[in-house]
Design a protein around this nucleic acid. Structure first.
Length: 844
DNA sequence: GAGCACTGC
């Protein structure tokens, strides 16, 4: 290839000039422009950055390795000489290395040991638009470092750039731009909005496939779907079409065995249809694709700081992601992309995916910052500041784990924890291992939870039987079973056949070993005693409990998997968990997933615990502020974290007759301050509310308390405006109540019928378009209505209602509050509560 | 219908 032909070359002289005078440069260039291989060489070759290394940050290990290889080859040098790379557990560098490709976390760690980054002349951030959390943090640290080291150059490269905020953040900085050499991709939208509840997304994709092939489009086809289930349905749906008979239709996602993945990526005699998750959006390139069919959906992981739960829900992708997906059709020739949504819907989508820093658990990052001497994380120079609530919760967790003292300073324990590259919870478990004689086991557990799970899910009866047989049936901890499974795989040298009998992912198991060894090595370096002998189960269980004490759960009954979790949460024990009989357990993972049309919270990686340990491990005697009758076991747990655990305690108490006025008052306080999530109403709760005589807030999928006229009117209004749909009214009883309020026309609307003219309770006639599944489209008329009624839009899919409940035989002390002032006072509170629960909605 | 993709001296 003639390198001079790469489009990025047009920037060569401008870059050299900029480097003479500027220390911060933004380069905007699309994927495929050659920026990742050429810019570092230009920087090195023009000599303007001065002596020292050019470090290039990559979000993915594979990319770092491949780019280094490529550049070494271009410069006719051996890898690890002038050009090298460094990723976790792997390095090819030497003292001669001038260009070093690294993953983002590596440089952040390097900053801990060498805050001045001596020997580094230039840091280049590649693929910055992906906005990974470590990229954000490292950039912030690099900019701070420039204040001391004025010779340090920072270059930020990005494909699509929302340059505004970044430009401000980097100011003063210089910008360079290069056009790509992508082939044009013709983008087509659906003419009519597709409701995936009416027509399945796989059928819609198969239709799109049929029409694309029917109109003579050439090349291979790439279909984007949110997950494995949708992929398998899509594969079936496409195969069933007659026009697919000349095609090989293949799935592609992370859970697939490597052989199948290779088949999807590799060449094929027939034309190909690859149905894939997001792996094909950034990580994997499939040659020959000229048609992309995009469902516009993806499963997106978030951490909900309000509840302390990881969520994994299907969401609509951003415009930037959609463009990235479309671009996959134009890598080798002009192509086309069919989007299964309308152009109008497209405009309503967010420009960019929310950066990771706003979606992830911050524990590790904050601990790393603290270790880097940044005491005031709230005032840190964030490119995008994380949610203050999320930050608070993180600081609380780190304090609970003993990494920070009450002034927020790093403790000696915290200093040790930082040495271990893992979530602080696991680092804490490792340190606790010293007390309980299970450091080695803790190292293995930490290694096992780093990457993909080594035990495959949804295995057949046979496989599960094998597991019980070969791994033993003890019911102590899922971690123990994971460890046994790994040791089995290790003993069998990760051979595919042996692994398959137990449903073990051999490749994932193989990657555990070096991590395990590394962690043991680090533990030894930190002076922990790494014993060979396994401790009694009990000690390991206690050790685990210490790291996850805020995730203690209790089985609600023996017949179901349903559990109560501290902090007012509920969830179901994973049906594959080995913890079967213990009523009390601790979950290392709590995540909310979409199962069918419902949301389910699942408790994973569980460990049985015993009530007696609580006194031993949490001796602090914290006064509990209520006299209500509580489950004695829960009371112990609650006693430890009185403040945060109160929710569970109170929730438990509701199952019984509440006869303590004080308990009710505490509860009211919890609800109103947003600390306690609302619970499913039942008669007890109603009685409780009646007793407290307070304002509470609710939303329909959690049930409806006795509602006054005003609240009811508002609710109807929201229904008419399309802000709520029947699906939101999850509970049958609630639905029956609501149904009884509505006129037939309103009922129709709620059931998702066509646009209607309706008279609102306020007397206004409006025409309404029901906008379920997307942010409500506010027409001018409706906007006007909002203005007239002073009802703020809380967001799609929920109705906050006001409940003014009265004690029996008591007159209202004041008439139902003036709605306007109610909203003015309560809106921020409600919004905060709901925002945590429905992060994917757009808020204003 | 029980669950995306990455990553750490």
């Amino acid at each position: 290839m003639n390198l001079q032909k790469l489009p990025i070359y047009e920037l060569r002289s401008a870059l050299a000039t900029a480097l003479e005078s500027e220390t911060r440069i933004i380069i905007e260039a699309p994927t495929g422009s050659g920026k990742s291989t050429q810019i570092p060489q230009m920087v090195l070759d023009c000599g303007a950055a001065g002596p020292g290394e050019v470090v290039v940050l990559q979000p993915r290990r594979l990319a770092a390795r491949l780019l280094a290889k490529r550049v070494a080859f271009e410069r006719n040098e051996p890898l690890g000489g002038e050009v090298g790379y460094q990723v976790r557990m792997e390095r090819e560098v030497s003292d001669k290395t001038q260009i070093r490709y690294v993953t983002e976390g590596i440089l952040l760690r390097q900053l801990l040991s060498d805050p001045l980054l001596r020997g580094v002349s230039t840091i280049i951030f590649d693929e910055f638009h992906e906005r990974h959390i470590y990229g954000d943090i490292t950039l912030a640290r690099a900019l701070c470092l420039q204040e001391i080291r004025s010779d340090l150059k920072v270059i930020v490269m990005s494909a699509t750039l929302d340059a505004g905020p970044l430009r401000e953040y980097l100011a003063p900085c210089c910008e360079l731009k290069s056009e790509g050499r992508m082939f044009p991709v013709d983008i087509g939208y659906s003419k009519k909005r597709i409701d995936f509840r009416q027509q399945s997304v796989w059928d819609a994709a198969a239709d799109a496939f049929e029409s694309a092939i029917g109109s003579g489009a050439e090349g291979d086809v790439l279909v984007f779907m949110p997950g494995a289930y949708e992929i398998s349905r899509t594969v079936d749906a496409i195969r069933a079409r007659r026009c697919a008979r000349d095609f090989a239709v293949m799935p592609l996602h992370g859970e697939l065995p490597p052989r199948d993945q290779d088949a999807a990526v590799g060449s094929c005699e027939k034309r190909k249809v690859v149905v894939s998750t997001n792996v094909a959006e950034t990580s994997i390139t499939i040659d020959g694709v000229r048609i992309v069919i995009d469902s516009g959906l993806a499963r997106i992981a978030r951490f909900d700081p309000n509840r302390g739960i990881d969520t994994l829900l299907v969401e609509r992708i951003s415009r930037a992601s959609a463009d990235q997906r479309a671009g996959r059709a134009g890598r080798t020739a002009p192509g086309s992309c069919i989007r299964l949504w309308t152009e109008r819907e497209h405009v309503a989508r967010p420009m960019q995916q929310l950066p990771e820093i706003l979606r992830h658990d911050l524990a590790e990052v904050v601990l790393t910052l603290k270790a880097g001497g940044i005491d005031d994380v709230r005032g840190f120079r964030w490119l995008e500041a994380p949610d203050p609530l999320s930050l608070e919760r993180t600081l609380t967790l780190l304090t609970d784990l003993g990494a920070l003292d009450h002034a927020g300073k790093l403790t000696a324990v915290g200093e040790k924890m930082v040495q271990f590259p893992m979530h602080p919870r696991y680092a804490r478990m490792l340190l606790a291992g010293e007390t309980f004689g299970c450091v080695r086991q803790a190292c293995l557990i930490a290694a096992l939870t780093q990457g993909k799970s080594i035990l495959q899910r949804n295995k057949d009866r046979q496989t599960r039987g094998n597991r019980d047989e070969m791994l033993g049936e003890d019911e102590v901890s899922d971690f123990k079973r994971l460890m046994r499974a790994w040791m089995f795989a290790d003993k069998n040298r990760y051979q595919a056949d042996a692994c398959r009998t137990l449903g073990v992912n051999g490749a994932a198991a193989r990657q555990v070993k070096p991590l395990y060894e590394r962690f043991v090595q680090l533990a030894e370096r930190e002076g922990l005693s790494v014993n060979l002998q396994a401790p009694p189960d009990e000690d390991l269980q206690k050790c685990i409990l210490l790291a996850f004490s805020d995730q203690v759960a209790r089985r609600r009954d023996v017949g179901t998997l349903h559990c109560q979790v501290v902090h007012g949460r509920t969830g179901d024990l994973d049906r594959d968990s080995v913890v079967r009989d213990s009523r009390l357990l601790v979950a290392a993972e709590i995540r909310e997933i979409e199962g069918g049309r419902d949301l389910n919270v699942r408790l994973n990686l569980c460990t049985a615990i015993s009530e007696e340990w609580l006194d031993e491990l949490f001796p602090e005697d914290i006064e509990v502020r209520t006299e209500a009758v509580f489950d004695p076991v829960l009371k112990r747990v609650v006693t430890r974290h009185a403040k945060t655990f109160r929710g569970l305690e109170l929730q438990a108490s509701m199952k019984q007759e509440v006869d303590s006025q004080q308990a009710a008052e505490i509860m009211a306080e919890e609800v109103l301050s947003g600390r306690l999530n609302l619970f499913k109403w039942d008669e007890n709760v109603e009685r409780w509310i009646a007793r407290v005589n307070c304002l509470a807030i609710g939303c329909p999928d959690y049930g409806i308390a006795p509602i006054d006229e005003e609240a009811r009117r508002m609710m109807i209004q929201e229904i008419c405006l399309g802000a709520v749909c029947k699906r939101d009214l999850k509970e049958r009883s609630v639905w029956n109540v609501v149904k009884s309020w509505l006129t037939p026309v309103q009922l129709n609307l709620l059931e998702k019928q066509a646009p209607e003219r309706i008279q609102l309770p306020s007397g206004l006639n409006v025409k309404v378009r029901y906008a379920e599944g997307e942010p409500p489209v506010i027409s001018a008329t409706i906007q006007k209505l909002y203005d007239l009624t002073d009802v703020p839009r809380i967001g799609f899919g929920m109705i906050p209602v006001v409940v003014e409940a009265l004690a029996p035989n008591q007159r209202p002390q004041q008439k139902t509050q003036d709605m306007q002032s109610f909203w003015a006072n309560s809106y921020p509170l409600i919004k905060k509560e709901l925002k945590g629960r429905y992060p994917k909605h757009e808020w204003r």
